[in-house]
């Protein structure tokens, strides 16, 4: 019982930090945390920061073609930021 109590005491400051809006991650942080995983998914060729159709900052994922499995496994939002999936084609050095 004492151990549980100590754990709660230790958790409180952590939870308080997490709730502070000043501490929520920026879209740049969220993109950085997720891009390696996104770029490994079949057909993903780019991950950047742009705007969604409503003009909100969004994480934009580019595909080289039709990849229904990849599209269905990319979440609609990451940490509250919208994720937009676009087909951009293969990106080649020009």
């Amino acid at each position: 019982m004492r151990i549980v109590a100590i754990c709660f005491v230790l958790l409180i400051p952590v939870l308080a930090l997490g709730d502070d809006p000043g501490m929520s991650p920026s879209i740049q942080d969220v993109k950085k945390q997720n891009e390696a995983q996104l770029l490994k998914m079949a057909g993903v060729v780019s991950v950047g920061i742009g705007l969604d159709s409503k003009g909100n900052q969004a994480i934009i994922v580019g595909l080289d073609g039709s990849h229904p499995e990849t599209e269905s496994s990319i979440p609609a939002t990451l940490d509250g930021f919208p994720v937009v999936v676009q087909t951009v084609g293969s990106i080649r050095a020009q």
Binding site: L39, S46, G48, I49, G50, G62, I91, R92, A93
Partner: peptide, 24 residues
């Protein structure tokens, strides 16, 4: 249209290089 872009860029058959901090 996009900043802070990470992209897989093809250089010939099967050669891919990752670029970061690109403009799109």
């Amino acid at each position: 249209q996009q900043v802070d872009v990470s992209a897989n860029v093809q250089y010939g058959a099967g050669q891919v290089a990752v670029f970061t901090d690109q403009l799109l």
